[in-house]
Design a protein around this nucleic acid. Structure first.
Length: 154
DNA sequence: GCCAACGTTGGC
DNA sequence: GCCAACGTTGGC
């Protein structure tokens, strides 16, 4: 059964419109530098899993669209690139530390603002809304997924 | 730009 | 293996 995830992206780097404009509407999810989030990609995320595409660190944070995991787990190329802000000098091609995964657009939605998410009792359990959460990839339960779809449909 | 919360690093 | 210092995240 497909699982559900929420993935944060800074729209300055990759927005929902960038995803829509990408070749095959698919982008490699690079720049994850947190072990827990990396392990989700390595151990749990599977092609076909559903993704809430979330805009963070921007004027209007919130869910901006729906995407899917397309597979393609591979070493994150940016860790080897000295000119990249995601360069990791401790990572080598023999022993890569960080992974990327391909994400493809399902559909752009209306923006579901963080404020509205926080106000929705049905989303109170969402991991991304818990105080102090900083994970860029978080699991979403089936009930939370349905609740987000219901809010988006309003 | 601020700042609280958190993860990582590295000396011991 | 502890833990203080440091860097990062991300909403405001």
């Amino acid at each position: 059964m497909a699982q559900h995830w929420l993935m944060k992206s800074e729209p300055d780097e990759v927005s929902i419109d960038d995803l829509a404009a990408a070749p095959r509407q698919t982008v490699p999810w690079t720049g994850v530098r947190n072990y827990q989030a990396r392990n989700f990609m390595r151990d749990q995320m599977r092609p076909g899993d559903d993704v809430l595409f979330y805009h963070s660190s921007c004027p209007e944070p919130g869910i901006a669209g729906i995407a899917k995991v397309a597979g393609g787990v591979a070493p994150d190329e940016t860790q080897f690139d000295p000119t990249s802000p995601y360069f990791d000098p401790k990572s080598t091609r023999d022993k890569p530390r960080w992974l990327q995964i391909d994400v493809t657009l399902a559909r752009k939605t209306r923006l579901l603002p963080l404020k509205e998410m926080r106000a929705a009792p049905s989303l109170a359990t969402m991991r991304v809304l818990q105080p102090g959460n900083r994970l860029s990839i978080t699991p979403v339960t089936g009930a939370e997924w349905q609740a987000v779809l219901a809010l988006l449909g309003r």
